[in-house]
Amino acid sequence: MSENLIEFNNISKFFGKVIALKDVTMKLKKGEIMCLLGDNGAGKSTLIKTLAGVHKPDEGEIVIEGNKTVFDSPKDALDMGIGTVYQDLALVPLMSVTRNFFMGREPLKGLPFLKTFDIEKANQIAAERMGQIGIDVRDPSQAVGTMSGGERQCLAISRAIYFGAKVLVLDEPTSALGVHQASMVLKYVVKAASEGLAVILITHNVHHAYPVGNSFTVLNRGKSLGTFNKKDISREELLGMMAGGEELDKLEVELKEMNRINN
């Protein structure tokens, strides 16, 4: 058995003439956090959807725990332990914490042909799981709408883990959050990794990614610019590597120019 939990070998994905991904390779071990960086249009979304089983790669192979795997549907990916938390989180604000936690996978009790939703057990598990993250849900029947953005993100991650994720795929988990909320989510991500999960953190925010990541893969225009270990690369180098880096350099020059003219 390979020591990598999941491998993406030379994955390519085409939409008609458009090359969305070309020869992307990534490898993750248990307990590793890999940050997938890239500007808008770099192919991050396509890569996530390929991981989640929404798209099938046109070239290359996905290897999970040493076995070559093909996902025919999102459910296949879930069954293989790929837990994807999309940006919209798939949470319903008007529904309770418990009802969201178990949405679509409600625990049942009762007679074989008259099973009912075991709401007591569900409440108990939801409160317990949220408690482990340090979120004290005063009442698991409170609506998710009353929770903060960071708490919601943690709820969605916690749900993915509870339902058997071995590889967590997080799509921009901190993009809509303030500093405090973002650090709460990132702390939880580190904790999840320390408990043996592999985490793929997709973001365009190097400042959020750098402190928590073990390795960094930079995507640019559908191609991987390589995977780097933390010790081999600095925050500034990473930033420079993303398309945004060049742009920012240019912006800086332009601003200096403007200042010079104004003065």
């Binding site: 999102p74 459910k75 999309y86 919209d88 989180l89 798939a90 949470l91 319903v92 604000p93 008007l94 529904m95 009802r99 178990f102 949405m103 679509g104 996978r105 409600e106 049942l108 099973k115 009912t116 939703f117 709401i119």
Partner: peptide, 25 residues
């Protein structure tokens, strides 16, 4: 509505169709 899995699906379908679909409702 309160005691069955189907009831939870009703709330989920009306609350957020895409979210519900993504988690398998």
């Amino acid at each position: 509505l309160m005691k069955t899995r189907y009831g939870n699906w009703i709330f989920a379908s009306g609350g957020d169709k895409n979210g519900a679909t993504n988690v398998g409702v």
